[in-house]
Amino acid sequence: MSMLRDFFTFIGKVSCFGVKALVGAFQPPLEWEFFLGQIEEIGWRSLPLILAAGFALGVVMSMHTRGTLVQFGAEAMIPTLQSAAFFNELGPLVTALLVAGRVGAAIGAGLTNMRVTEQIDAIESLSVDSFKMLVVTRIVACIFVLPLLTVFMDFASLAGGFFSEHATSHISLQLYMTSAFKTVEWANFIPPTLKTSVFGLIIGTVSGYFGYTTNEGSQGVQRAATNSVVLSSLLIIVVDVILVKVIFFFFPGQAI
């Protein structure tokens, strides 16, 4: 019973943490310097990871689908399937999970370390809102950067798929792109890309909460980092189910 109460208490605290951060984002003054710094840290420095992962996944996906589709004589469907899979689901989800792994751990560990080393207390002593400066900027940066990284992931995966297909069947780039975008509609591209903002909110909120609230020395740093990644990833996958349903609700044509 007490565990259940602790669980709901945790949910309530995290939710309030997130709402407070969102509200704080719209309350001036905004810490632009820290925000742009987080953009660079979360976005720019994650870009190699996203591009490499997207390209590799594109190659692997193309190879796997080819093996299956060839049995039905439907090799021409490979670009279509590739784009449909990455634009709809794989691109946003994999991007969010990768960012959760890289950035979530960094946020959780970084903030916990600042708490342990009393850097946050020092900031507070200067009458600066540490929450707004350290947490809000990270959460907003995650919300802003995730869709952009998703776009990179989508196109990197298409590039990987084309690379694989061209090596196998010498398909031209024009035909590959025409086939890839033949069945994709805006509803397959814009809502899934924008839903990663929610993933960014989850990553920023969860990791910010664990980092900002943990004050238990080096073990706390470790636990905060681990919890940030695990819970962020879990929530991303669970929330993705809800978001897909929401998209189908607003774009019924996309529901198969």
Partner: peptide, 16 residues
Amino acid sequence: FVLSAVVLFSVGLFLI
């Protein structure tokens, strides 16, 4: 980073 993402997003929109 931001400009590339926006350009790619626009390209996606136009291709679709």
